[in-house]
């Protein structure tokens, strides 16, 4: 087989084993293996030729990380990291071993939850009811219909919907932050008023999700909340776990 490098999935503690039926990226799926270097280890497989961010490979990456997370703390790699060869990877592991081990300790027994808030699907009626400025624009557009009036009304509605979703999302993030060990702002996602990740103790998962559900109900006329998890701790691998302060 031609050598395309080593695909790196995660860094784990040396003592941890591969989950049963572990499958890697590529078609047919590559067989993952563990490369131990002192107290830490990397989960790797041969990298497939022409690796791209395909759905199949993204899923393989994600599912292997999820399975690994069941058995111990995991430092998930971002999708698509390939080491040139085993030697280069071993050097990296040896060099950063202490730091990785410290981060693994911090993540032990914890999982990530990701919260996204988008404008609620039925937000329009509530908005028109509650916002006098929108009501006025709507009246204007009715009494003096026309392109310009419609444009003014529509723009005001679009702006207000996203503002209300962001307000609700920020409030929800603030509430959930008090139940999390850490919180990190997620990458900006189009259409998403809020995108934030929480580091949650496994013992608190039930309470966390129940609270999220309650908050979702409270804010349902402003934002629709999407909670994903438990996830591998993608957002908390930096070593220094950010203080649990509110993100916007």
């Amino acid at each position: 087989m031609a050598d395309h490098g080593l695909y790196v999935y995660a860094v784990i503690r040396s003592g941890q084993r591969l989950p049963a039926n572990a499958r890697g990226v590529g078609g047919p799926p590559a067989a993952p293996r563990i490369l131990r270097e002192g107290a830490i280890a990397a989960v790797v497989s041969d990298a497939p030729p022409q690796l791209r961010a395909r759905r199949r490979d993204l899923l393989a990456h994600q599912e292997l990380l999820l399975a690994l997370s069941e058995d111990g703390p995991v430092l998930p790699m971002r999708f698509g990291v390939v080491a040139t060869d085993e030697q280069a990877l071993r050097e990296q592991l040896a060099e950063a071993g202490t730091r990785h081990l410290a981060t693994l300790e911090q993540l032990a027994g914890r999982v990530e939850f990701n919260l996204k808030a988008v404008a609620a699907q039925n937000a329009l009626a509530a908005l028109v009811r509650e916002d006098p400025a929108i009501r006025q624009l709507r009246e204007d557009a009715r009494h003096r219909p026309g392109y310009a009036a419609d444009l003014r009304l529509g723009e005001a509605v679009a702006t207000a919907l996203s503002r209300r979703a962001a307000e609700a999302g920020t409030h929800v993030v603030r509430e959930l932050t008090s139940l999390a060990h850490a919180v990190a702002a997620g990458p900006e996602v189009q259409g998403c008023a809020v995108n934030a990740s929480f580091l949650v103790d496994r013992d608190d998962v039930e309470h966390f999700t129940a609270t999220a559900r309650q908050l979702a109900f409270t804010h349902h006329e402003r934002a629709e909340l999407r909670l994903a998890g438990p996830l591998p701790c993608y957002s908390f691998v930096a070593g220094q776990i950010p203080a649990p302060t509110a993100v916007t």
């Binding site: 490098g5 971002r78 990291v81 990877l89 990740s197 957002s235």
Partner: peptide, 17 residues
């Protein structure tokens, strides 16, 4: 998806897809 693609650990000297 954005977490898998945009978060997680990277090692600077390695190639990334």
């Amino acid at each position: 998806l954005e977490l898998i693609l945009d978060r997680g650990m990277v090692i600077d000297v390695f190639v990334r897809v």
